[in-house]
Computed example of a mutant assay.
Amino acid sequence: MESTPRPAVSIVIPTHTEKRWPSIVRAVAAAKSQTYTPAEIVVVVDHNPELYRRARRDLSGVTVLENLYTQGVSGNRNTGAFHTSTSLIAFVDDDVSMGPEWLGNLIAPFSDPTVVGAGGGICPDWQTGEPRWMPEEFLWAVGGSYSGMPTTVSKIRNVWSAGMIVRRETFLAVGGFRVGFGKLGNQNRPEDTELCLRMSALGGGHWMYVPDAVIRHEVPAGRSTFGFFIRRCYAEGRGKVAMAGLLDGSESLGSERDYLRSLPRAVVRNLGAAARGKGVGHALKAGGVIAGVAAAGWGGVVETVAARRTPQRVTAEATR
């Protein structure tokens, strides 16, 4: 009996700043070290000629491209993905590292033809130590897998582009990441979630979460502060409302509603632990949950108001 041929996969690594050069080198080395050998590794530089020249000069054994679209990570990833020709395309950020079995573990679910994509577990790599106030339920704010996610291989609504893999045919059919919707400057919109929803909607496919396909995601000192946490939650609230406006309205936010319903239990659990003398850190985490929800909620309100005003401005200008 003939064995099923192994699908070919390319790895796309978007990058934008020389400040991450050591991380870029480490991410490329990790991609090269995979036991499941990728057909091609593509590094895409986002409108930074100096970094592009350095990458071309110093990164051997990889393809280096410049972003063909407007500035932003969505166009950066699309540039790399559309360049490839493999049936599967993996994406990793330029500030992650992963063990040699990462790619092989992440590819396993694709034996099911209804799987359109997969993502793995993300472990925050704290450069200055994990803050005492950081709730496990909010590790997504620093790009990590959070408490409440599946612990075994499971269907999931969406994964994160810090370490994900997509079926090329479906990715191309939906046009890839939505250019102009994503992370740029202070804007932090969930371009990966939005992509996952569009890919799932095409033909009823689904995503898989593979917790053993772990990457380590750097969390520098500047992202370990309470101020960053609040800004990130606020941006997430705005981004999710903006995403709903692009898709099917509030119907696309079902997972977010389920998540919010779980947070009161986290507050009660941490306050109870603090009352039993298990440390003030639990009380701080309870406060972190409340602050994070408040910041995200305010962001959602701001985005909702802005969205309602935009058509009015357009109409007013059109009648002049």
Rank of each mutant, 00 (worst) to 15 (best):
Q312S: 04
V289F: 00
K240W: 01
T315K: 06
A235K: 01
D258R: 15
R223V: 06
P100F: 01
A29F: 04
M134C: 02
A307E: 07
C196A: 13
E236F: 07
V219I: 04
R26I: 08
I107N: 13
N186A: 12
G239S: 09
G175Y: 01
V96T: 09
G72I: 00
L184H: 12
E136Y: 06
E136Q: 11
G117E: 14
A118F: 13
F171R: 10
I11P: 06
D46S: 03
D94M: 11
G144L: 04
G72H: 00
S224C: 14
G203L: 05
F91R: 11
T63D: 11
P124N: 04
A283I: 08
E169C: 04
G99C: 04
E136T: 07
D112T: 07
P109G: 10
G144N: 04
G117R: 15
D192E: 13
S252D: 13
A316N: 12
E2H: 08
S252Q: 09
K285R: 15
D112V: 07
L247G: 00
A283N: 04
V166D: 01
A244Q: 06
F228V: 01
T15H: 03
D212V: 07
A213Q: 09
I107T: 14
D95S: 03
G182T: 00
F91E: 12
P311D: 00
G175V: 06
P135L: 03
L271P: 04
V219T: 02
C196M: 08
Y69W: 12
W140S: 08
L202Y: 01
